[in-house]
């Protein structure tokens, strides 16, 4: 195949502007985008900067934007992505570019993974011959650990473009791996940490991560698992964001009492009178248009007592 690779080139320290450079590339059928990049190094510019390591879909190192969509260069066949004989290769979005296709993966991933303190803190001493655990309990851990930090979930994340400090689905998936490891004994402390700002409660659960994960780990669901576990253990927020716990408690109390949500009460109990004062312009506008239901006045739904019984049973079980 004869193709043109349009490759993002930029050295931010050189004071020049980023540009897409075109390179003619000649590849056999079945060749990958990584093969094309390596050929550019061989034939045109040995200094083209990009990262790649295992070259066959195991290590997650060569994540790039290929024809405007995040992919691993080493397992993306050129024939499948080329449009009109062209392949555009760029760094992923929402990240600092260091040079050409090399971006700051330390900021995107590694620092965040260290932040979740992802090492096991065993609950009990290991018995002779190893821990005895039903395989069904380890299967989700293996699935989560099949994550190879390609960063595609973070690249597709709804929050990171607005807040690069958000821990993100990859790091939270790593957190899942230890929180749910049957050998770990530190779930409560971990969830407290994960509950702090930029942790799991900052996730908007938009399910973009599920769409972007090439390994089918469904990171959004793993974040839900963490949050559900936090609720179960009564660790509903970190110390710096107590309103998150108040929000949950108020939401649950309202549904438990009446079967449905008392939004006025939710606002009041989440923010308290002090913060509501700060949000007064918003509240006033809402009130004037009848959009702020008066707290505590809403009626019980018929059958609400059955909803309450569901809450009771779940509580008794955990």
């Amino acid at each position: 195949m004869e193709l043109i690779f349009k490759v993002y080139r930029h050295d931010p320290t050189a004071g020049t502007k980023p540009a897409l450079e075109s390179y003619p590339v000649s590849l056999p059928d079945g060749a990958t985008v990584l093969d094309g990049l390596l050929q550019i190094r061989d034939r045109h510019d040995g200094g083209l900067a990009f990262r790649a390591a295992c070259g066959r879909g195991f290590c997650g190192e060569c994540t790039l934007r290929i024809n405007r969509s995040g992919k691993l260069a080493c397992i993306t066949r050129v024939a499948q992505v080329a449009k009109d004989g062209e392949v555009t290769v760029e760094p992923v979005r929402n990240i600092t570019v260091l040079k050409d296709l090399v971006y700051d993966v330390d900021e995107l991933l590694w620092q965040k993974i260290a932040w979740v303190e992802p090492w096991l803190r065993p609950a009990t001493a290991q018995p002779d011959g190893g821990y005895v655990i039903p395989d069904a309990e380890l299967e989700p851990i293996r699935k989560a650990m099949s994550c190879y930090y390609c960063g595609l979930c973070d690249e597709g994340c709804s929050v990171i473009p607005f807040d690069r400090r958000f821990s993100g689905p990859a790091a939270l998936t790593k957190a899942f791996r230890v929180v749910f490891d049957p050998r770990d004994g530190a779930a409560r402390e971990r969830l407290k940490r994960l509950g702090e700002p930029r942790g799991m409660w900052d996730c908007v659960h938009c399910y973009e991560a599920n769409e972007h994960c090439p390994r089918g780990i469904d990171p959004t669901d793993r974040i839900f698992d963490l949050r559900d576990k936090a609720v179960e253990l009564g660790v509903k927020s970190g110390t710096a964001n107590p309103q998150v716990a108040r929000h949950y408690d108020s939401f649950a109390a309202s549904v438990r009492q009446s079967g449905w949500l008392d939004e006025g009460r939710l606002a009041l109990e989440t923010w308290g009178l002090g913060r509501l004062g700060e949000l007064l312009p918003m509240a006033w506008r809402a009130l004037r248009r009848g959009k702020l239901p008066v707290p505590y006045l809403h009626r019980k739904r018929p059958g609400a007592e059955w909803i309450r019984r569901i809450f009771d049973k779940v509580e008794k079980r955990s």
């Binding site: 939401f251 549904v255 449905w260 739904r301 059958g303 609400a304 909803i307 079980r317 955990s318």
Partner: peptide
């Protein structure tokens, strides 16, 4: 359906919301 509950809106944990929705 007037006699059913809030589905949890992604806030309530699935331990509670799945039974409510099954109902």
């Amino acid at each position: 359906l007037t006699d059913v509950g809030c589905n949890g809106a992604g806030v309530l944990s699935r331990a509670v919301s799945d039974p409510i929705n099954a109902r």
